[in-house]
Nucleic acid binder design. Structure first.
Lengths: 227, 227
DNA sequence: TTACTTTTGTGTAAAATATACACATAATGC
DNA sequence: GCATTATGTGTATATTTTACACAAAAGTAA
């Protein structure tokens, strides 16, 4: 029984970056005929012989040149039969993070129609991309409390105050500096470097590093991150 | 730019039922040419104009007659380009639960090639269905502790000892009866009925009911289930 | 060089939550 | 009525979470 289907399969990525103490999303300006010149998530159609994650990375490279530090599958959108006006498209959405020190700010120029948008100043998006983006935001916020995923948004070495600020910004609730530090340090996957960093004024602060190996070791022992 | 793709899209469902104090999965014996007569998850190809969840429910009805009490999207499998020997197939996997009182035990007969298998006595499965099943098991176990999903596996009215047994079986760790009861009751979504149920011997026990409305009310107030 | 501002770094007491634990009650079967 | 089986319940202890304030190290401006 040979099957004929008239459904296309695409991938879309919600890529988050953290800069200027604010969460940003990577968007591209569409060039195709549908939703021409509207902002959209990075994505495109999957090639016949291409694994899904490869497709995501390829589109990301082609459209923006960005390389991810974290990537996970989010959800497959396709219940709304006409999300794409051309024909039925099912989109496997991914959710990615990029290390703050790797972010090269890109703007909306003729050459490169890609831009980092602060999540609180988003433009209207093509297709059902707003819905996808919101799912990704929910997922990010939820994961922050039970997976040490926030470190993928920071540079390799960071201040405790930066980590704290990130949590405050993304979760929108206050943090007690002493309790937060105690809690985070108690897990044992943060290591103190011998480096210091100074702001314009104030006491210089130690830089810390997230030790991924150590984290996985703890995880395998059944010790789980939980804020 | 018209796109040509040679990828098929299917849905597969891992359906769990709880009977004889054991977790079971619904499997069907394949009739098609590939993996003929092997056991597989319920599933099939998505119709062009059909939402994904509709496809799952349709296949489930067609192949087994079973109706679900809980359904959620699990994961989309498609990175392994040749999971299906015929052509590339991307499968959106779902994870479903069925209320214990609705389970009609079905066996492997000529008429109905479907069967409830205890999860600890599973046969080899077609395609990559073992992998899918394991993901679903992981998800079920994880969710049990932060969503009151276990109630969807029990009959509408159940004994506390049955709920306790379910958690013991699925999570594989001991429970202190007194503390467990205190904890569960403290959430306030379980209601005591005036009904009793007796086993062969021993003191008769009260039947309880899960109040879904109450649960959602609590959830909306920011009170979350957590064991 | 002094005093003012900014940011980091740290401990302890009180409150809330989780854990450990044992015996009386209500039924059945012999 | 006695043995067996399963339900139902409270309290004390340990652990975890929360609340909270002041000294240290730098820069800046008078």
């Amino acid at each position: 029984m040979p099957i004929r289907q008239n459904i296309l399969i695409a991938v879309d990525a919600v890529v988050f970056g953290y800069m200027n103490a604010n969460l940003h999303v990577l968007l591209v300006k569409r060039k195709g005929s549908t939703f021409h010149k509207e902002w959209a998530l990075v994505g495109g159609f999957v090639l016949d012989d291409e694994p899904l994650t490869t497709a995501v990375k390829r589109e990301l490279k082609e459209e923006t040149g960005v390389q991810l530090d974290y990537l996970e599958q989010l959800f497959t959108f396709g219940d709304t039969v006409d999300r794409d006006p051309r024909s039925r498209v099912i989109s496997v959405a991914y959710f990615g993070l990029i290390n703050s020190s790797k972010i090269v700010p890109i703007g909306d120029t003729d050459a490169m129609d890609a831009k980092w948008y602060p999540v609180n100043e988003l433009p209207d998006l093509a297709f059902d991309h707003s819905e996808i983006l919101n799912s990704a935001l929910d997922r990010l916020r939820a994961k922050l409390t039970y997976q040490p995923i926030g470190f993928d948004l920071l540079p390799n070495e960071f201040l405790f105050s930066e980590l704290e600020q990130l949590y405050v910004t993304l979760l929108g609730k206050d943090i007690d500096r002493r309790n937060f530090r105690k809690k985070i340090m108690s897990f044992g996957f943060l290591e103190e470097t011998s480096l210091f960093k100074q702001k314009k004024s104030g006491r210089p602060a130690k830089l810390f590093r997230f030790n991924d190996l150590k984290y996985r070791e703890l995880e395998s022992k059944g010790i789980y991150f939980d804020l």
